[in-house]
Design a protein around this nucleic acid. Sequence first.
DNA 1: AACTCGGGGCA
DNA 2: TGCCCAGAGTT
Length: 216
Amino acid sequence: MIRKTKAVMNRVTEVCKRLDEQYGSDMRTYLDHRNAFELLIATILSAQCTDKRVNMVTPDLFAKYPTVHDFATADIKELEKAIHSIGFYHAKAKNIIGCAQKLESDFGGEVPRTIEELTSLPGVGRKTANVIRGNIYEDPSIVVDTHVKRISKRLGFTNSDDPVVVEHDLMKILPKENWIRYNIQIIYLGRTICKAPNAKCSECFMSDICPSCKIK
DNA sequence: AACTCGGGGCA
DNA sequence: TGCCCAGAGTT
């Protein structure tokens, strides 16, 4: 667990300020959707797959299956065909159908709100649940993926590899009202500059305050 | 905690 | 070719 030292909190303040300056203060999810259910499906599809490719298939997908009931009664082979280019298509098709069926049977066709309810759905883990909570219900939530984990360590915001510990560390130090915004900004930073093997520190707007910066 | 699932994009 | 991608489920 990280300790809220003065040095860490000063860095948090500066990092948040620069993220907003760089990326704007209205960042949310990358995934195209018109309602909670569509975001849930898109997020399930996005596991181990870039958002760009998810957004390529979702318009046709949601046109073919407009409602929860359409997914709940879908033919799995046909659904697999519709999402084939995503990867993991068999498991994801199965999960999406099971998910839609459980929404109908247990939740009145609505997307539930709590972590426990969301993660009880097939194909929905902690990350997906937090995407829904943060983007749809605007409940304070932190999404921990490989980008968030890596950058949080590099910035000295956590020293753990356990996603749940990282989540709690970030909850302790980030300004609560903007968790999901900083979350998506950090992910974007990770995709473009602060990469896993080859971090482009020379292009980074936080190089001067980053403890892991390789160019001083 | 390790392992498996997998197609497409990009270097 | 080889590596990577807003993970989740099973063992």
